[in-house]
Design a binder for these strands. Sequence first.
DNA 1: CACAGTTAGTTGTACAGTCCAACTTACTTA
DNA 2: TAAGTAAGTTGGACTGTACAACTAACTGTG
Lengths: 242, 242
Amino acid sequence: MAGEATGKSVGKSGDLDFPRPLTTVDVVIFAIRDDSLQVLLVRRPAGEGEPFPESLALPGGFVDVAKDRDLAACAARKLREKTGVTSPYLEQLGSWGSATRDPRGWSATHAYFALIPEKAGELAADARWFLFSGGRLKEKLAFDHGEILATAIQRLRNKVEYTSLPAYLMPAEFTLPDLQRVYEIVLDRPLEKSAFRTRILSADMIEPVAKMRRGPNRPAQLYRLKKGREPVYFVRTFNPPE
Amino acid sequence: MAGEATGKSVGKSGDLDFPRPLTTVDVVIFAIRDDSLQVLLVRRPAGEGEPFPESLALPGGFVDVAKDRDLAACAARKLREKTGVTSPYLEQLGSWGSATRDPRGWSATHAYFALIPEKAGELAADARWFLFSGGRLKEKLAFDHGEILATAIQRLRNKVEYTSLPAYLMPAEFTLPDLQRVYEIVLDRPLEKSAFRTRILSADMIEPVAKMRRGPNRPAQLYRLKKGREPVYFVRTFNPPE
DNA sequence: CACAGTTAGTTGTACAGTCCAACTTACTTA
DNA sequence: TAAGTAAGTTGGACTGTACAACTAACTGTG
């Protein structure tokens, strides 16, 4: 495998001797920070021959055929390198490939999206969190990363309507109003308190811990995610607005 | 672009001189035939150095950087080459990449799934329809295509619960009981007639044509898909079994 | 030509879960 | 002790599915 080099003939049949697209992996990393949905972006390097120098981009890069066992491992590696987070919610988003998306030639990227709790330790030096204002990012992104990001948000919003995905954006312990707030941030619309509670509590996805969150008002029950990390699918969506 | 060959140094920075994974596209093509869900598979060639010689596999192959503008075009090309169908429902399924899935080296495939109406003209010589018995395919497939196929079925089933996807499996004109039958075949469970009709008719996705299907019993209204091909999303799933 | 058989399509009641709004509870602060 | 606020509950209206019984429209048979 290591002797395969850049795709020059390797097998007996010799039919692998043709141009290969570049293969990359990019990760859309979401977190809730400052009461809003944020995404982690990196600044591209400025070197000669670098495409989109100094533009903002999704964290990612070439698959390393020596280091990466598979695509998911590659995505997990990039997530870890940028955030230090090791076991988040990581889902494949899709792939984008064309002759023109990278000026260096035909390329295909495998995009993942990750949900992580706010805490997160140190970020890599080139990485920063960015905010959506009005559901959109202000900055233009390198390559087709704007499109990938838009797809990620759409997928996230869509799934939040009928799954427990936002649970992966929560810290270890949280209250039901906390969780509802995160749903509302992602969906960008208010939800009904009683319907929300009924749905979440009957989904058997969280369990109360023997503590209350105390504050200036009535204390709130703290919960944690139950083991068995698969997201829950609800049989109805929250009823759509208007 | 054409001079790029197999990944040998091209840019000024020269940092593209590293091994590139093989890049392929595979297509899971579904149709309803003989009152059941079938998938189109091809027999792999027998040549020396061919992986999985004579095994069954999904239609697919290497991205051709000269012919294929992007991944979707590549998938559409493979669909066309095997079935002659040109404008089906074609959705990206995901990508699978690892060091071990192809004995020829690190490879990544971009998988698509297509829904086509039964009619379909001539098939390519190496292609044949295969049946699921008991929700599973009997044959073992080459590479990780069994896994890809399983994911495709799961995705199809899942979406059929709350979208109008099966409409793309229908011929140009069909009756409501026809459509319900297709839902039932895919979901492998019976649905309620009245709830089904209410849902479909209020979704504004089909329109009656001025004809009836006549047969040995009461004639049935014929419908066709409305223009504007996006699938419809329902706010509830069909209530799950048991 | 009536009647059985079959499928198309409708109707009505029960039920589940959201929507909406008002209510009670438990705390803090003045 | 009273006002304020957020947590959590309760009940009636509404939407859409589940289930079952019904009517409608045709064919084929005796």
